[in-house]
Structures are given as C-alpha cells and as structure tokens.
C-alpha cells in the first residue's frame, strides 16, 4: 500500500481563473510532505486537486498530469470516485456524520464499496481503524453514541479513522489541527508520524512549527498578488526549507517577515 504522487505542469482553474500554475512535484510514498504558504496562495486548491475534490465546485478543472505511481488520475475514463477512494482526505474542521454513531462513522466509507461483511469483520475493522487513529481507548465503551458528541480533537481523529478504514494509498490533510487545542494537535501530530509508516501523507498547514515537526519535505507556495495565480516556489527537505532556503521569498516567509 501507499503510492507516490507526481505532478507535471499542473494548472488548476476555477472557470477561467487560473488559481495554481505550473506545479511540478514528486512526493515519495510513505512520507509526510507539508505545504506551507500565506493564505490564498493555492496550497489547499492544489491539495484538493490531488484527489479531484476541487471538481465539486462547478467550473473547476485541471490541466497537466497528476500521477499516482504511474497512473494519471486525470486520464480519460478515470472516475473521480475511484480516485477518492484511493486518496482519502481529512478536512479543516472535523466532520463526522452527525446522524451516525461512532461505529457507523468508521464504517461509512467501507460500506460504500458494497462489500458484505459479517458483524465480527465489521468489529475488527472498527477496532483496527480506531486503534490506528489512537482513539480506541477513549471510545471503545460508547461506539453506539453519536460521533458529534466527541470533543473536537476526538472528532478529528474519528475522521482520520474513517479515512484509514477504507485503506487508501494516500491521505490528504487540509489544516487538520487549525480548529483544535494544543493537546489535541499534539495527538494528531503523533498520529501523523505513526500513519507515515503505511501511508503517503500530504498536509497543508499554517503552522510552520507543525510543518517542521511532522514532515520530511516541505513545499512553499506563494502568490505574486491578488488575481495572480499561486505558484510552488520551493520544494525541498524540511530542514533545508526552514534553515537554509535557496529562494529569498521562502526565507522571508519562514523567518516571519510576511504572511
């Protein structure tokens, strides 16, 4: 499991507006890659193009190639539904399904595949996924309670469990800790470094310390001005980006001079 991602000259459009221009990036399997940059620079847009989620908005489209190992996810005849079941996503705000119990939430994605499973199989999946998300011990006695009754940090880990349960190749995280307190953030960060053993993880974050803590490689995005497309300025080892960036914009951003 876990695949690499390669973008070749990727342009992302909203209608006629070019939001992200000319991204070339190679993300290795079983690694954590962080996207940093000021607001509106296109890092979330680019992240959402990695599992074709940006297409949910009318008029959004992509030019260029995006390879999952060797397969272009924008190739002709590729169903976005298939792509999304291989490339999972965790959102900025925890979004467990409010009408479902914790258990049902974990199984939600799994059930989509239509696979019939016995109760014990389902139990195994639930336990495995919740263990994987470091949530099992906190919720094992109330699996039938609604997921929306958990704390924010627990909800976010429930969402990660839900994503992990479908055994994706890649997990995308869009500022997964921005709505959480420091302790919950720490729990998620620990989880990320564990998940990296099995999955390719791409995380967008506004918190540069977080990027430094969790990722091996970091990509810095920036925008020349409003109405201009966002671009990937620099992509390198995380330590290089933070200690010895080659680009001046990156240097100014990571040292807190703007953004």
């Amino acid at each position: 499991m876990s695949k690499s991602i390669t973008a070749k000259d990727l342009n992302v459009y909203y209608g006629d507006f070019l939001a992200v221009e000319g991204v070339n990036i190679e993300i290795a399997a079983r690694s954590v890659t962080a996207f940093i940059g000021p607001s509106g620079c296109g890092k979330t847009t680019f992240l959402r193009s990695l599992n074709r989620m940006h297409e949910v908005l009318p008029g959004a489209r992509v030019e260029g190639q995006l390879l999952l190992d060797d397969d272009n996810i924008y190739g002709p005849g590729v169903d976005p539904v298939t792509v999304r079941s291989m490339v999972g996503m965790v959102f900025q705000r925890p979004n467990p399904f409010p009408t479902m119990s914790i258990r049902e939430n974990v199984l939600a994605g799994y059930k989509l595949n239509g696979a019939r499973m016995s109760k014990s199989q389902a139990d195994d999946i639930v336990e495995g996924a919740l263990h994987g998300a470091n949530l099992w011990n906190e919720v094992k006695d109330r699996l039938d309670k609604p997921g929306s009754g958990l704390s924010g940090g627990q909800q976010q880990r429930l969402c990660i469990a839900r994503t992990v349960a479908v055994k994706p190749e890649v997990i995308l995280m869009d500022e997964p800790c921005s709505a959480l307190d420091p302790i919950s953030t720490l729990a998620i960060e620990d989880l990320i470094s564990e998940l990296q053993q099995e999955y390719t993880i791409v995380i967008v974050t506004h918190n540069m310390q977080q990027a430094a803590r969790v990722s091996q490689k970091t990509a810095f995005f920036n925008i020349a001005g409003t109405g201009k497309p966002g671009k990937m300025i620099e992509y390198a080892e995380t330590s290089t980006i933070f200690n010895n960036p080659s680009n001046q914009q990156t240097e100014r951003y990571v040292s807190g001079k703007f953004g």
């Binding site: 999304r84 959102f91 467990p96 409010p98 989509l112 479908v166």
Partner: peptide
Amino acid sequence: PKLHEEAALALGATRWEMITMAVFPFAR
C-alpha cells in the same frame, strides 16, 4: 452542510451515495 457532503465524497461516494449519506440524514 458542505462539510458533510465533502466528507462523503472524499470517502469515494458517488453523488447518489453522498445524498444518502449526508443529505437525507440531515434533511430527515
């Protein structure tokens, strides 16, 4: 909520599955 619709889609739900997972329970 867009949040729940996207949650379903991101799990690999088709449009109809998204509606049964996110829209109908919310609208019940």
